[in-house]
Nucleic acid binder design. Structure first.
Lengths: 352, 352
DNA sequence: CTGTTAGCGCTTTCAC
DNA sequence: GTGAAAGCGCTAACAG
């Protein structure tokens, strides 16, 4: 900036003003300054600028546990769409479900003055997300409720969706239903199991411990667990899978063992309709989760009062039946249900 | 920091030193300072720190065109793995193939002192990525070669992979082969079409213009284009699809029209093996692309000489045949071929 | 209209 | 071992 000022024969202050489009600058000096800027390829150092201004960087951080999960990619797209409308950018960081990394990366972000953070936190203690520890940057928690802190959050109706889909299996006459679950330490895992339990209990059906497996974290583990259930002396006639990894694993098992076991699962996924077996999925709009999370965060950023009580939103789910069973999809959650058919809320394009 | 110093009864300088683990600090004062830090929830302001230091932020930026594309998610994971090893973090931003947004976001990143950038640039003029315009932050270009600038880059063997897969179709006796392509303005689109042409020419087969469609950017467009080709009076007996969106669209068309058309496509994808029709895909390891890109960038960051000539790496592809055709996968590219079977290079976990 | 002064939060350099 | 001063690149506030 000094160099620019020197070359233009003005003071640094004038350069600064030109870059602000300060009205009270002669066209002549403005031209000279811009000339010098062009000649030197100068770019204002936003970092120093924000240091001085102490405020608004026009960026928010989105912290996810697993970038390979399409759910988070769609969530990011939703958050971007909403942030974009008011000229705010989104940067995404991936924690790999590692608490240490999460803390380090969040620190990196806030110390670089992101205006706020949307985070799907790892673990079950979120006190490291306390506003006071974050340079005052507001936080919105997604996909699970905040624990140990107060913060806005956006949830998916894990409980209701699972309950509905399980009830469908029951309605079709299944009484022996297996459950392929997530680690119960994960909020979503616990909620989905709770929904499963509720549907079973409501129908007066027992939950057979032999039919319940947790901890499947990828497709091959899920397939192994499903195979084990189907190989029991008195196997379940239907399975509920707690997310799309488990659903796909279960599908592979059912398909190759030819047991004709009925299948339902949480999460819609691409090609779910093309698998050649009937499949019931609990669908929801992950883009909407991103929209809502960004909306909550932006409201906090612009809405003066920091004292506003935290808000909690829940995105509804709907049950979709693919394959043999011909029945129109019915929505299960609250007001909205964006999903209806087979081409889902995945947004993508063709470029690789 | 002032507050911490006051509470600990020392000067700001001492606090700074404690945070550096400066050896010549009494254990006693150190304890007092750390105490105060804890009590106040103080975090060092990295932004101010780097302003003073002028250097190394320990973060690199990864700029992608489409975060919903699993290719980029896998690339990000690869880049993270490599960067993580030396304690460098990765932040990801999504441009949505919008040049303006790309420029703005890159500017945001460099002005926040990311140490370097890995970018899959939109458009066919990359002069905005010139090192001089980027506070000197080095750039690595991925998925397409740099145009108008010199920079390191990592490519996929689009040409070779497509040629190999097309040759397989020819070897099976197909002479009328359709091509579902990307916009030719995209480097990958042009390269893949070139590979297709080469295989056809080598086999002495003509390329029928009626059989070639570009511009399909999502699955439904691809399906429509495929339907059009298959409805021709003298339809092709095989299709090559230029990426996984086109492959899935083509699959939907072939499946519902029951034409028995043979199918090959660029990109492997989840469930490709479960579709119930034979399918040939060009596979490669997107995680490896990320590894290499990060490696090139980190080399530039640590390797003193900025004058080193740019390097260009190409990730090999392999052809995989799913379904009816039982033939062991054969590698097509250079040294490595990570892929062999059906469970591919997608890395994910079960948590939603 | 433009320049000067001061300071954002931190760290280097030199005293003590 | 610790503190005081100066300055990284920028901009509000006040002069002129």
């Amino acid at each position: 900036m000094r160099d620019v000022a020197a070359l233009a024969g003005v003071s640094a202050m004038t350069v600064s003003r030109v870059l602000h489009d300060d009205p009270k600058i002669t066209d002549e000096t403005k031209r000279r300054v811009l000339d010098a800027v062009g000649k030197l390829g100068y770019r204002r150092d936003e970092i120093a600028r924000n240091l001085r201004l102490g405020r608004s960087s026009g960026l928010i951080g989105l912290v996810v546990t697993n970038i390979a999960n399409p759910f988070y990619a769609q969530l990011a797209i939703g958050a971007e769409e909403t942030a974009e409308q008011i000229g705010v950018g989104v940067v995404l960081v991936n924690t790999g479900e590692d608490k240490q990394r999460e803390m380090r990366l969040i620190n990196d972000l806030v110390s670089r003055r992101v205006d706020g953070i949307i985070v799907a936190p790892a673990g079950d203690d979120h006190r490291h997300l306390d506003v006071n520890r974050l340079h005052g940057a507001p936080v919105v928690v997604t996909a699970r409720p905040p624990i140990g802190i107060t913060a806005d959050c956006v949830l998916v109706d894990d409980y209701g969706g699972t309950k509905d889909a399980t009830s469908r299996l029951v309605a079709r006459g299944h009484t022996k239903i297996g459950f392929l679950g997530l680690p119960p330490s994960a909020w979503t895992g616990a909620e989905r199991f709770r929904g499963f339990q509720a549907a079973m209990t409501e129908a007066g059906l027992p939950i057979d411990d032999r039919y319940v497996r947790y901890q499947q974290r990828d497709i091959s583990e899920a397939e192994k667990a499903a195979r084990a259930l189907l190989a029991l002396p008195d196997p379940p006639t239907a399975l509920f899978a707690a997310n799309n990894r488990n659903t796909i694993g279960a599908f592979r098992a059912v398909n190759s063992m030819g047991t004709g076991t009925a299948l339902a699962g949480f999460d819609d996924f691409e090609l779910a309709d093309m698998l050649g077996l009937p499949l019931t999925v609990v669908a929801y709009d992950p883009v909407e989760v991103g929209h809502l999370a960004a909306r909550l965060l932006l409201d906090r950023l612009s809405g003066g009062e920091p004292g506003t009580p935290p808000r909690r939103l829940t995105v509804p789910t709907s049950v979709i039946e693919y394959g043999a069973v011909a029945e129109p999809p019915r929505r299960a959650g609250a007001e909205q249900a964006r999903r209806g058919g087979a081409e889902p809320s995945h947004r993508d394009d063709a470029a690789t």
